[in-house]
Write a protein that binds this DNA or RNA. Structure first.
Length: 456
RNA sequence: GGCGACGUGGCCAAGUGGUUAAGGCAGGGGUCUGCAAAACCCCCAUCGGCGGUUCGAAUCCGCCCGUCGCCUCCA
């Protein structure tokens, strides 16, 4: 398939070198609720992975948890509980919500705190090769910085030069750094902070080094695809490239760099620091997993996507439309609908830099064809299974949400009662049952084969 | 200040040089239905503005207007 590569700035043919695609996706820092913006990123990379697998490629997917970080420490301090307890809580939430969104679990979820030896080893190697240096010790521990000037191609991912970075007014020169852009590989411990022993005294890893160390350890020196949100391009991914390539001496660290656009909240981006967010949980509860996925996949993964209640509600209704087409009863034995042309169009769309929007449009076209054919007494079973297969590539379940509702037997009883009333032409009473159930969130539909129901 | 993205119907959103500008939602009119719902049929845009290149541009170039992101933790 064709994929846009941030590193080259072009769309290129994506292939895996050894028949198995090695894919690393930057994970979350588990210090508070995950929001719809996170859902966007992980739904997109999940869809990419599903598509690659659908096309017969094996994928090994690693996604980290940054379970040591300033905000995590601050949160734990505020709550008066250990840091790992906070991390554990939000990791569990994240896993629950991503599972609800039908996001396939990664094969390995490394955590920074469990990779300390690998991180230290890598930092030592960088110092030996002259790419890193410790600062003057204070209170028995030092920071370690990466020397950005040592490698000539620093800035190749984000397409910036060191000069242009330095001309930006935002960088504060830090005491002990040779160059203000040098970034931290190891942070010397401050009193009361969680820390690990190291050759530079007690401390903890900087943000960027963990991903390099984990990627190296779990996937090897060179990988096929590294993904994350657009905001990670600089400095995070730029720094990962610098330190990994300096350490291994092999380039490129990752052949493809894929970044998703941001979820906008009205005029601003949705982010934890701005506090303007819809949590993953809330979005799933209100619009359903398929609704959330259709909202996200309905636009291009590289463009900014703007959240609105209206758009989310539209996506929920749209998901229902697909569900009806894929679950409706067969029309009969007439001329069967051929799903093949739709499958071809779907694949062509996905091949083109993951054009999920066009792929979804194909699903809607197929849905219309199925509905039309069913009304005409034609066989639609095969077309429905094609549709189910393609929807599955987008991670859509297209299942009714109400199958195990506790009230189901009572609803069935009321439907039976209403049927008798209708047969006796007692329409006023029959309609009272229907409107009464509607107010409780149960929608009745009278079809040729009887009355069915669903929760709204 | 530096780098970048975007502006398509009421809303969301594909399309990036050439038949009638995808698809979804909403709206209007029909069919079906006891009435609804669902489904089906029909209707609903010349692509921010100006100028240029071209036989031909939403699609390429220039300028302008507007919106947003990154450069600092962030999917």
């Amino acid at each position: 398939m064709r994929l846009y590569n941030t590193l080259s700035g072009h769309t290129e043919e994506f292939t895996a070198r050894d028949g198995e695609a090695l894919m690393y996706v930057c994970g979350i820092t588990p210090y508070s609720d995950s929001h719809l913006g996170h859902a966007m990123s992980y739904v997109i990379f999940d869809t990419l992975r599903r598509y690659l697998e659908y096309r017969g490629l094996k994928v090994k997917h690693v996604q980290n948890y940054t379970d040591i970080d300033d905000k995590l420490i601050a949160r734990a301090g505020r709550e008066g509980v250990p840091m790992d307890e906070v991390a554990e809580r939000y990791i569990r939430e994240f896993e629950r919500d991503t599972a609800a969104l039908n996001i396939l679990p990664a094969h390995i979820y490394p955590r920074a705190t469990q990779e300390i030896p690998a991180i230290i080893e890598m930092i030592e190697g960088l110092i030996e090769k002259g790419y890193a240096y410790p600062s003057q010790p204070r209170d028995g521990s030092s920071d370690v910085y990466y020397r950005v000037e040592k490698k000539a191609d620093y800035g190749k991912l984000s397409k910036r030069s060191l000069d242009s970075m330095l001309s930006g007014a935002r960088i504060e020169p830090l005491e002990g750094k040779e160059n203000p852009m040098d970034f931290t590989l190891w942070k010397g411990a401050k009193p009361g902070e969680p820390s690990w022993d190291s050759p530079w005294g007690p401390g903890r890893p900087g943000w960027h080094i963990e991903c390099s160390a984990m990627s190296l350890r779990h996937l090897g020196k060179q990988i096929d695809l590294h993904g994350g949100g657009l905001d990670l391009v600089f400095p995070h991914h730029e720094n990962e490239i610098a330190q990994t390539e300096a350490y291994t001496g092999e380039a490129p660290f990752s052949r493809f760099w894929v970044h998703n656009g941001f979820l906008q909240m009205g005029e601003e981006k949705m982010s934890k620091s701005l506090g303007n967010l819809i949590t993953m949980r809330e979005a799933i509860d209100r619009f359903g997993p398929d609704g959330v996925r259709i909202f996200i996949l309905g636009s291009s993964y590289r463009k900014p996507l703007t959240y609105s209640e209206e758009a989310m509600a539209a996506a929920k209704v749209a998901a229902e439309r697909l569900r009806v087409a894929v679950t409706c009863e067969d029309g009969g034995t007439g001329d069967p609908v051929d799903g093949a042309p739709y499958k071809e169009r779907f694949i062509a769309a996905m091949e083109d830099d993951l054009n999920t929007s066009a792929a979804i449009a194909v699903l809607f076209d197929l849905a219309r064809e199925i509905n039309r054919a069913r009304d005409a007494g034609r066989a639609v079973g095969e077309a429905q299974s094609t549709m189910r297969e393609l929807a599955g590539v987008l991670g859509l379940r297209l299942e009714a949400a109400d199958e195990s509702l506790a009230a189901a037997p009572f609803v069935d009883l009321l439907i039976e009662l209403r049927k008798e009333l209708r047969e006796a032409k007692q329409y006023a009473l029959a309609d009272r049952i229907r409107t009464g159930l509607a107010e409780l969130g149960i929608v009745l539909e009278d079809g040729a084969g009887g009355t069915s129901w669903k929760s709204a």
